[in-house]
């Protein structure tokens, strides 16, 4: 059992949980994730380790309640526990000294997984420019944290309520225009966002790393459910990734595979809502 030490709603439907997991905290590196299972009946779902504290033995998860399993997790209170937590999984990001200028782009909830990468890049002595995109000001998360680890932070909102009006690619375009010499781009967020960043950087030959989020089960390379098309090869995102060369990823195929259970997921969410409804009546 893994105890939830802190819980906070960062913006509507987006939660931050600090969990007691000393073995995992000791080992986790930026770019890695865990798989959790709330209770005996629930699904295994992957979540990125958004932060870790090796001394305190804790990891931080930041997640959006979008369906049955994330809603179930969101209902857990401080002091309660989740049944299973396995990790760290996946390959760590390739962080090194002397890469130069790294642009870290986080779209929506994608800011959470990009944060530990930005921090590590900065600690390794690179110049970090962060671009954070959100639909609107009130759903922007982790702005202070990102600013603290970046040489420059640019915010974009779709509706213009804060920062630059537009998308993360608008801000990236401005960096290129002003002549910023960019050595590597990290882009994590919704598939459409990662695809448009990759499409923008491909003609400029800017190395671009994306973190893929296909449906996973075991996270150890055993089921092959997480397979993604990268160039001419099929890769298992949980063990070969989750980070891949954005210029080679087939994003359309990823989108299709993510939708494999859409109707059943809606059914699961209905069942879940029903169950907590019942819980209140009795």
């Amino acid at each position: 059992m893994f105890k939830i030490l802190e819980k906070k709603e960062l913006s509507p439907g987006v939660f931050r949980m600090v969990i007691d997991a000393p073995r995992i905290a000791k080992k986790t590196q930026p770019g890695q994730f865990i798989i959790e299972r709330v209770d005996e009946e629930s699904e295994r779902i992957p979540l990125t380790v958004a932060d870790f504290d090796r001394e305190k033995g804790t990891i931080t998860l930041i997640f959006q309640a979008v369906g049955a399993s994330t809603e179930l997790l969101a209902e857990k209170k401080e002091g309660e526990s989740i049944l299973n937590l396995v990790g760290p999984l996946g390959k760590p990001s390739e962080v090194a000294e002397g890469i130069g200028t790294v642009v870290c782009i986080g779209g929506g909830i994608g800011v959470a997984p990009v944060y530990p990468i930005a921090r590590a890049m900065k600690e390794a002595g690179n110049k970090v420019i962060s671009i954070m995109g959100a639909r609107s000001k009130e759903i922007l998360i982790m702005e202070d944290e990102m600013r603290a680890v970046s040489d420059e932070t640019i915010v974009t909102t779709d509706d213009g309520t804060y920062g630059i009006k537009g998308f993360v690619t608008t801000a990236l375009g401005q960096l290129v225009e002003r002549g910023e010499k960019i050595d590597r781009v990290y882009a994590i967020g919704p598939v459409v966002m990662m695809k448009s960043v990759a499409d923008a950087t491909r003609p400029l030959a800017l190395p671009t790393v994306v973190s893929l989020n296909p449906v996973m089960v075991d996270g150890t390379g055993m089921c092959g459910g997480c397979r993604v098309q990268v160039g001419t090869e099929t890769k298992f995102a949980c063990v070969d990734g989750p980070e891949f060369d954005g210029h080679l990823v087939d994003f359309n195929a990823l989108r299709t595979r993510q939708g494999m259970y859409r109707d059943m997921e809606a059914e699961a969410e209905k069942e879940h809502k029903c169950r907590i409804g019942l819980g209140r009546d009795s």
């Binding site: 009946e41 629930s42 699904e43 295994r44 049955a68 259970y261 997921e265 209905k270 069942e271």
Partner: peptide
């Protein structure tokens, strides 16, 4: 036993 158990199968 879906949806009692949370994992779908098609």
């Amino acid at each position: 036993q879906f949806p009692k158990y949370g994992t779908p199968i098609r």
